[in-house]
Every structure is written in C-alpha cells, then in structure tokens.
Amino acid sequence: MGKLQNFLKGIIKENPVLVLVLGTCPTLAITTSVMNALGMGVAATAVLLCSNMAVSALRKVIPDQVRIPCYIVLIAGFVTMVEMIMHAFVPDLYEALGIFLSLIVVNCIILGRAEMYASKNTVIDSALDALGMGVGFTLALFIMASIREIIGAGSWCGIAIPFLADVKISILTLAPGGFFVFGCLIALVNKLTGNKSSKKEMGCAGCPSAALCGKKESSECNKKETEGGEQ
C-alpha cells in the first residue's frame, strides 16, 4: 500500500512538471513532437532511476558537506551513459533531442529528487519514487507534445491526421506556442485541483536545487516539500 502510493504520487498529486513546475526547459523545448517527448521522458526516467538508486545506496557514505557535487558527478555519469546508448541505438532521436540530452544533468527534477528523497530513504523506496516521478514527467511531456503536435503540425506520432493537417496552426510548434500551451495546461491543472496551488510561485523557492543557493531558500524549500508530503 505504502509502496504503491509512493509510486503513484509522482504521477498525479506531485507531478513534477504540472504541479511542482520543475524541469521547465526540456518541457518547453522538446515537446514539439510526441516521439521526441517520449524519448526525452524515457531518457530522463532512466537517469532518474539510476541516480536515485545510487544516491540512496551511497547515502551513508557521502559526507554531508560535499553531497551536492557528489550527486552532480553521479548524475552526469549516468547522463553520459544514456547519451552514448542513445547515440548508438537511436541516432535519429539523439539528433532530435540534441543538447537537451546533455542538459538532463542540470534538470531540477533529478537533483531535486536526489536531495529531497533519495538521500533520506531506502534503495527500493527511492527507485519507486524515481519511477513514479519519471512516469509523471513522461506523461506531462506526452500530453503537452500531443496538444502541440496535433494542433500545430496536424499529426500525431508522425502520422498525419486527415482534416487537421490542412488547417494546422504552426505557431504552436514554435517557441511562443510552447509557453502558451504550458501556461494553459498549468491553469487547467489549477482549475482541476481547485486553485490550491495557484499561490505557488515559480523560481527559487519552488526549485529543489535551491539547496545550492543558501540556507534561506533551502529551508523554505524543504518546508514546502514536507508540507506537500503530509497532505
């Protein structure tokens, strides 16, 4: 029961993209097509799973003062592995994701989960947490990419949709469309959750990497996270 909830919380209640608003850069940049979104989601999930398990397994070994650099090295190592694997087996996707594949290193979700969760919990719990968060991330990317690809390019997963392909609104696949669709999706989530999260502000306090930017932000951040966990 507890284990299942641990997995499910990342998908809906604490969806990293739509509720916690983390990892906005890849969310906006690669959701121009569904295939890219799924590729990015799977790559980030793999890195998240490996890094969460490694951080959790090493949580008693890593000294507290240098934990952030240690996490970054671990994450960067896994990102490099994923990059090389994708370069070898899915070169098209590797080209399409481009620099955003390397930039998984600085994705707030991954460092955030390492700092907030994996450093305090067992390997199995951390793995479930990572899977839940990864699936939530992939799901959010998938929804957003579907909207942008169907309306903006008149296709879905590269398959042209008969009527929509003639009336496509291509601005949605460009930069302004990304911001617009993301804004509307978050507004929709706010509406569905009864505006509970409408006061939440983006930025330092909302980003777990704030642990890096001094005690004040980090304590605010921790507080927010525990409040979320107790609900």
Partner: peptide, 20 residues
C-alpha cells in the same frame, strides 16, 4: 486575470507574447 490563470500560468502566457 481569471482565478486559474493567476501566478505562473499568466506569466507563461505573457512570456509567449514576448517570445512572439
């Protein structure tokens, strides 16, 4: 703005117009 759009969503929508 409408209640659901307050905070981050309206910020993103205006960022979209700046990007335009």
């Amino acid at each position: 703005p409408p209640k659901s759009f307050r905070g981050l969503p309206i910020t993103l929508v205006s960022a979209s117009i700046v990007a335009l």
